[in-house]
Protein backbone atom coordinates (compact mmCIF):
# COMPACT_ATOMS: atom_id res chain seq x y z
CA UNK A 1 0.00 0.00 0.00
CA UNK A 2 1.57 3.25 -1.09
CA UNK A 3 1.31 6.08 1.36
CA UNK A 4 0.37 9.50 0.03
CA UNK A 5 2.33 12.29 1.69
CA UNK A 6 0.91 15.13 -0.35
CA UNK A 7 -2.31 15.63 -2.25
CA UNK A 8 -2.91 18.64 -4.42
CA UNK A 9 -6.54 19.06 -5.41
CA UNK A 10 -7.76 21.37 -8.14
CA UNK A 11 -5.25 23.99 -7.10
CA UNK A 12 -5.85 27.34 -8.73
CA UNK A 13 -3.35 30.14 -8.17
CA UNK A 14 -3.38 33.49 -9.85
CA UNK A 15 -3.71 37.23 -9.87
CA UNK A 16 -6.85 38.80 -8.48
CA UNK A 17 -7.12 42.01 -10.45
CA UNK A 18 -10.08 43.82 -8.90
CA UNK A 19 -12.26 40.75 -9.01
CA UNK A 20 -11.00 39.66 -12.41
CA UNK A 21 -9.19 36.44 -11.62
CA UNK A 22 -6.35 35.47 -13.92
CA UNK A 23 -5.14 31.95 -13.17
CA UNK A 24 -1.44 31.20 -13.50
CA UNK A 25 -1.89 27.66 -12.21
CA UNK A 26 -5.27 26.47 -13.44
CA UNK A 27 -6.84 23.76 -11.31
CA UNK A 28 -4.10 21.14 -11.17
CA UNK A 29 -4.34 17.93 -9.12
CA UNK A 30 -1.60 15.45 -8.28
CA UNK A 31 -0.34 13.30 -5.44
CA UNK A 32 3.08 12.56 -4.04
CA UNK A 33 3.86 9.18 -2.57
CA UNK A 34 6.23 8.39 0.23
CA UNK A 35 9.79 7.96 -0.96
CA UNK A 36 9.16 8.84 -4.58
CA UNK A 37 10.57 11.60 -6.73
CA UNK A 38 7.98 13.43 -8.75
CA UNK A 39 9.23 15.60 -11.57
CA UNK A 40 7.39 18.68 -12.72
CA UNK A 41 8.54 19.72 -16.19
CA UNK A 42 7.64 22.56 -18.48
CA UNK A 43 8.83 25.68 -20.23
CA UNK A 44 9.45 28.93 -18.35
CA UNK A 45 6.14 30.48 -17.38
CA UNK A 46 4.16 27.23 -17.35
CA UNK A 47 3.39 27.61 -13.64
CA UNK A 48 5.75 25.03 -12.21
CA UNK A 49 7.50 27.44 -9.84
CA UNK A 50 4.17 28.93 -8.71
CA UNK A 51 3.01 25.39 -7.94
CA UNK A 52 6.06 24.76 -5.79
CA UNK A 53 5.75 28.10 -4.00
CA UNK A 54 2.11 27.39 -3.16
CA UNK A 55 3.21 24.17 -1.49
CA UNK A 56 5.28 26.35 0.87
CA UNK A 57 2.72 29.13 1.22
CA UNK A 58 5.28 31.51 -0.23
CA UNK A 59 3.43 32.98 -3.19
CA UNK A 60 4.87 36.34 -4.20
CA UNK A 61 2.93 39.53 -3.38
CA UNK A 62 0.04 40.01 -5.79
CA UNK A 63 -0.37 36.30 -6.48
CA UNK A 64 -3.17 34.60 -4.60
CA UNK A 65 -4.42 31.16 -3.83
CA UNK A 66 -7.75 31.20 -5.68
CA UNK A 67 -9.23 27.72 -5.34
CA UNK A 68 -8.50 24.14 -4.38
CA UNK A 69 -6.59 22.58 -1.51
CA UNK A 70 -3.30 20.98 -0.65
CA UNK A 71 -3.23 18.29 1.99
CA UNK A 72 -0.49 16.49 3.83
CA UNK A 73 -1.77 13.80 6.20
CA UNK A 74 -4.45 15.55 8.26
CA UNK A 75 -3.35 19.11 7.45
CA UNK A 76 -5.34 21.18 4.96
CA UNK A 77 -3.21 24.07 3.74
CA UNK A 78 -6.23 25.96 2.51
CA UNK A 79 -7.21 26.72 6.11
CA UNK A 80 -3.75 27.72 7.21
CA UNK A 81 -2.93 30.97 9.00
CA UNK A 82 0.60 32.40 9.31
CA UNK A 83 1.42 30.34 12.38
CA UNK A 84 0.35 27.08 10.75
CA UNK A 85 2.49 27.78 7.72
CA UNK A 86 5.53 28.46 9.87
CA UNK A 87 5.18 25.06 11.50
CA UNK A 88 5.05 23.32 8.13
CA UNK A 89 7.84 25.25 6.39
CA UNK A 90 11.17 23.62 7.02
CA UNK A 91 9.72 21.05 9.39
CA UNK A 92 7.44 19.04 7.11
CA UNK A 93 8.23 20.54 3.73
CA UNK A 94 11.60 22.05 2.96
CA UNK A 95 12.76 23.76 -0.18
CA UNK A 96 15.96 24.38 -2.09
CA UNK A 97 16.28 26.98 -4.78
CA UNK A 98 17.78 27.50 -8.16
CA UNK A 99 20.53 29.96 -7.34
CA UNK A 100 22.91 28.58 -4.74
CA UNK A 101 25.11 31.66 -5.17
CA UNK A 102 22.42 33.93 -3.77
CA UNK A 103 20.26 31.69 -1.64
CA UNK A 104 22.44 31.92 1.45
CA UNK A 105 22.53 35.10 3.50
CA UNK A 106 25.95 36.70 2.93
CA UNK A 107 26.33 38.14 6.44
CA UNK A 108 25.85 35.02 8.55
CA UNK A 109 28.08 31.99 8.96
CA UNK A 110 27.06 28.64 7.47
CA UNK A 111 26.66 27.20 10.97
CA UNK A 112 24.34 30.00 12.05
CA UNK A 113 22.15 29.55 9.01
CA UNK A 114 21.71 25.83 9.60
CA UNK A 115 21.20 26.32 13.33
CA UNK A 116 18.51 28.91 12.72
CA UNK A 117 16.35 26.29 11.02
CA UNK A 118 16.87 23.74 13.79
CA UNK A 119 16.30 26.23 16.62
CA UNK A 120 13.09 27.51 15.09
CA UNK A 121 11.48 24.06 14.99
CA UNK A 122 12.99 22.06 17.81
CA UNK A 123 13.52 22.62 21.50
CA UNK A 124 17.24 22.07 21.63
CA UNK A 125 20.12 24.01 23.11
CA UNK A 126 22.43 26.06 20.90
CA UNK A 127 25.19 23.52 21.39
CA UNK A 128 22.91 20.68 20.33
CA UNK A 129 21.83 22.65 17.28
CA UNK A 130 25.46 23.29 16.41
CA UNK A 131 26.28 19.61 16.75
CA UNK A 132 23.38 18.77 14.46
CA UNK A 133 24.55 21.41 11.96
CA UNK A 134 27.98 19.80 11.90
CA UNK A 135 26.38 16.39 11.41
CA UNK A 136 24.36 17.77 8.49
CA UNK A 137 27.46 19.22 6.82
CA UNK A 138 29.11 15.80 7.07
CA UNK A 139 25.97 14.18 5.69
CA UNK A 140 25.98 16.33 2.56
CA UNK A 141 29.67 15.67 2.00
CA UNK A 142 31.25 19.02 2.80
CA UNK A 143 35.01 18.68 3.26
CA UNK A 144 36.45 20.04 6.56
CA UNK A 145 32.98 20.59 8.03
CA UNK A 146 34.28 21.92 11.36
CA UNK A 147 35.83 24.93 9.66
CA UNK A 148 32.99 25.46 7.20
CA UNK A 149 30.61 25.80 10.12
CA UNK A 150 32.28 29.13 10.94
CA UNK A 151 32.80 30.28 7.37
CA UNK A 152 30.69 32.65 5.32
CA UNK A 153 28.89 31.78 2.07
CA UNK A 154 31.31 33.84 -0.04
CA UNK A 155 34.08 31.45 0.96
CA UNK A 156 32.34 28.49 -0.71
CA UNK A 157 31.84 27.48 -4.35
CA UNK A 158 28.41 27.17 -5.98
CA UNK A 159 28.32 23.40 -5.61
CA UNK A 160 29.32 23.61 -1.96
CA UNK A 161 26.68 26.25 -1.33
CA UNK A 162 24.01 24.03 -2.85
CA UNK A 163 25.19 21.26 -0.53
CA UNK A 164 24.80 23.68 2.37
CA UNK A 165 21.30 24.54 1.15
CA UNK A 166 20.47 20.84 1.14
CA UNK A 167 21.93 20.54 4.66
CA UNK A 168 19.70 23.40 5.82
CA UNK A 169 16.63 21.94 4.10
CA UNK A 170 17.12 18.50 5.58
CA UNK A 171 18.20 19.59 9.06
CA UNK A 172 14.74 19.11 10.57
CA UNK A 173 14.20 15.84 8.73
CA UNK A 174 11.29 16.95 6.53
CA UNK A 175 9.01 14.45 4.86
CA UNK A 176 8.99 16.36 1.59
CA UNK A 177 11.75 18.22 -0.20
CA UNK A 178 10.88 20.65 -2.96
CA UNK A 179 13.80 21.26 -5.27
CA UNK A 180 13.19 24.13 -7.68
CA UNK A 181 15.73 23.73 -10.49
CA UNK A 182 18.41 22.72 -7.99
CA UNK A 183 21.13 22.13 -10.56
CA UNK A 184 20.31 24.62 -13.30
CA UNK A 185 22.90 27.14 -12.16
CA UNK A 186 25.70 24.61 -11.67
CA UNK A 187 28.43 23.14 -13.86
CA UNK A 188 27.58 19.82 -15.45
CA UNK A 189 29.97 17.80 -13.29
CA UNK A 190 28.73 19.49 -10.13
CA UNK A 191 25.14 18.91 -11.30
CA UNK A 192 25.75 15.18 -11.37
CA UNK A 193 27.25 15.27 -7.88
CA UNK A 194 24.32 17.19 -6.44
CA UNK A 195 21.77 14.87 -8.08
CA UNK A 196 23.69 11.85 -6.79
CA UNK A 197 23.68 13.34 -3.31
CA UNK A 198 19.95 14.02 -3.41
CA UNK A 199 19.28 10.45 -4.50
CA UNK A 200 21.46 9.02 -1.74
CA UNK A 201 19.89 11.18 0.95
CA UNK A 202 16.40 10.35 -0.28
CA UNK A 203 17.01 6.66 0.28
CA UNK A 204 18.72 7.27 3.57
CA UNK A 205 16.04 9.56 4.99
CA UNK A 206 12.97 8.08 3.22
CA UNK A 207 11.75 11.42 2.01
CA UNK A 208 9.71 12.36 -1.02
CA UNK A 209 11.04 14.88 -3.52
CA UNK A 210 9.20 17.23 -5.82
CA UNK A 211 11.73 18.13 -8.47
CA UNK A 212 10.95 21.15 -10.60
CA UNK A 213 13.04 21.31 -13.73
CA UNK A 214 13.02 22.03 -17.42
CA UNK A 215 15.83 19.55 -17.98
CA UNK A 216 14.49 16.23 -19.27
CA UNK A 217 17.89 14.65 -18.69
CA UNK A 218 17.58 15.39 -14.98
CA UNK A 219 14.07 13.94 -15.04
CA UNK A 220 15.27 10.70 -16.60
CA UNK A 221 18.04 10.49 -14.01
CA UNK A 222 16.02 11.25 -10.90
CA UNK A 223 12.28 10.79 -11.16
CA UNK A 224 9.80 7.98 -10.68
CA UNK A 225 6.87 9.87 -12.07
CA UNK A 226 6.61 13.03 -14.13
CA UNK A 227 4.06 15.75 -14.57
CA UNK A 228 4.32 17.85 -17.72
CA UNK A 229 2.84 21.30 -17.32
CA UNK A 230 1.82 23.65 -20.07
CA UNK A 231 0.28 27.12 -19.57
CA UNK A 232 -0.72 26.44 -15.97
CA UNK A 233 -2.22 23.02 -16.58
CA UNK A 234 -1.06 19.41 -16.38
CA UNK A 235 -1.02 18.03 -19.92
CA UNK A 236 0.55 14.68 -19.21
CA UNK A 237 1.31 12.59 -16.17
CA UNK A 238 3.21 9.34 -16.52
CA UNK A 239 5.80 7.01 -15.08
CA UNK A 240 9.19 8.21 -16.18
CA UNK A 241 9.77 5.16 -18.42
CA UNK A 242 6.43 5.67 -20.17
CA UNK A 243 7.07 9.34 -20.66
CA UNK A 244 10.16 8.64 -22.70
CA UNK A 245 9.09 5.38 -24.37
CA UNK A 246 5.43 6.03 -25.01
CA UNK A 247 5.20 9.76 -25.19
CA UNK A 248 1.62 10.81 -25.65
CA UNK A 249 0.84 14.50 -25.58
CA UNK A 250 1.94 16.46 -28.65
CA UNK A 251 3.55 19.03 -26.34
CA UNK A 252 5.68 16.41 -24.59
CA UNK A 253 6.64 15.02 -27.98
CA UNK A 254 7.69 18.48 -29.02
CA UNK A 255 9.78 18.87 -25.86
CA UNK A 256 11.54 15.55 -26.43
CA UNK A 257 12.09 16.31 -30.10
CA UNK A 258 13.77 19.57 -29.24
CA UNK A 259 16.48 17.78 -27.27
CA UNK A 260 19.71 17.72 -29.27
CA UNK A 261 20.78 14.23 -30.29
CA UNK A 262 24.48 13.57 -30.64
CA UNK A 263 23.97 10.74 -33.15
CA UNK A 264 21.79 12.84 -35.35
CA UNK A 265 23.59 15.32 -37.57
CA UNK A 266 20.87 17.85 -38.07
CA UNK A 267 21.70 21.34 -39.09
CA UNK A 268 19.00 22.89 -36.94
CA UNK A 269 17.52 21.77 -33.65
CA UNK A 270 13.81 21.24 -33.85
CA UNK A 271 11.63 23.49 -31.74
CA UNK A 272 7.98 24.04 -30.94
CA UNK A 273 6.79 27.05 -32.94
CA UNK A 274 5.12 29.92 -31.11
CA UNK A 275 5.26 30.88 -27.43
CA UNK A 276 3.32 30.03 -24.29
CA UNK A 277 0.20 32.25 -24.27
CA UNK A 278 0.02 34.86 -21.49
CA UNK A 279 -2.34 33.99 -18.59
CA UNK A 280 -4.79 36.78 -19.49
CA UNK A 281 -4.92 35.65 -23.13
CA UNK A 282 -5.55 31.93 -22.87
CA UNK A 283 -7.21 30.23 -25.82
CA UNK A 284 -10.67 29.02 -24.79
CA UNK A 285 -10.21 25.46 -26.00
CA UNK A 286 -7.09 23.35 -25.62
CA UNK A 287 -4.34 25.70 -24.50
CA UNK A 288 -1.73 24.06 -26.67
CA UNK A 289 -3.91 24.11 -29.80
CA UNK A 290 -2.34 27.21 -31.42
CA UNK A 291 1.09 25.51 -31.38
CA UNK A 292 -0.01 21.91 -31.89
CA UNK A 293 0.87 19.99 -35.08
CA UNK A 294 -2.18 17.72 -34.58
CA UNK A 295 -4.75 20.45 -34.04
CA UNK A 296 -8.27 19.65 -35.30
CA UNK A 297 -11.89 20.73 -34.85
CA UNK A 298 -12.29 19.06 -31.47
CA UNK A 299 -9.52 21.20 -29.97
CA UNK A 300 -11.83 24.25 -29.87
CA UNK A 301 -13.11 22.66 -26.69
CA UNK A 302 -10.86 22.13 -23.67
CA UNK A 303 -10.03 18.43 -23.25
CA UNK A 304 -10.18 16.67 -19.86
CA UNK A 305 -7.36 14.46 -18.56
CA UNK A 306 -7.86 11.04 -20.17
CA UNK A 307 -6.57 7.89 -18.49
CA UNK A 308 -4.51 5.97 -20.98
CA UNK A 309 -2.70 2.83 -19.86
CA UNK A 310 -1.63 4.14 -16.48
CA UNK A 311 -0.81 7.62 -17.77
CA UNK A 312 -2.96 10.71 -17.94
CA UNK A 313 -3.11 12.90 -21.04
CA UNK A 314 -4.97 16.11 -21.66
CA UNK A 315 -5.57 15.69 -25.39
CA UNK A 316 -8.56 14.78 -27.56
CA UNK A 317 -6.43 12.33 -29.53
CA UNK A 318 -6.70 9.99 -26.55
CA UNK A 319 -10.44 10.26 -26.10
CA UNK A 320 -10.89 6.59 -27.00
CA UNK A 321 -7.84 5.24 -25.26
CA UNK A 322 -4.79 5.01 -27.45
CA UNK A 323 -4.14 7.55 -30.13
CA UNK A 324 -5.55 6.80 -33.54
CA UNK A 325 -3.35 9.30 -35.21
CA UNK A 326 -0.03 8.11 -36.52
CA UNK A 327 2.55 10.81 -35.95
Amino acid sequence: MVQKVLEVEKLKVGINDDGRKIAIVNGISFTLEKGETLGIVGESGCGKSMTSLSLMGLLPPGVEWLEGDIQTHDLHFKKFNKQDWRKVRGKRIAMIFQEPMSSLNPVYTIGKQIMEMILSHEHVSKQQARDRALEMLKLVGIPRPEQVLDEYPYQLSGGMRQRVMIAIALSCNPEILIADEPTTALDVTIQAQILELMKKLQEQLHMSIVLITHDLGVVAEMCNRVIVMYAGEIVEEAKVVDLFDETKHPYTKGLLASLPDIADEKEYLSSIPGIVPAPENMPSGCRFAPRCPNVHQRCMEAPPLFDVKGSKVKCWLYEHGDSEVVM
Binding site: N105, M117, I168
Partner: peptide, 17 residues
Amino acid sequence: NQQYISTAKSKGISDWA
Protein backbone atom coordinates in the same frame (compact mmCIF):
# COMPACT_ATOMS: atom_id res chain seq x y z
CA ASN B 1 13.99 40.67 -3.52
CA GLN B 2 17.07 38.57 -2.89
CA GLN B 3 16.90 34.81 -2.99
CA TYR B 4 18.20 34.43 0.56
CA ILE B 5 15.06 36.15 1.83
CA SER B 6 13.03 33.34 0.24
CA THR B 7 15.37 30.86 1.89
CA ALA B 8 14.82 32.55 5.25
CA LYS B 9 11.05 32.45 4.78
CA SER B 10 11.18 28.79 3.78
CA LYS B 11 12.74 27.98 7.16
CA GLY B 12 9.51 28.77 8.95
CA ILE B 13 10.92 31.62 11.07
CA SER B 14 8.76 34.61 11.98
CA ASP B 15 8.16 37.48 9.56
CA TRP B 16 10.01 39.91 11.81
CA ALA B 17 13.01 37.64 12.07
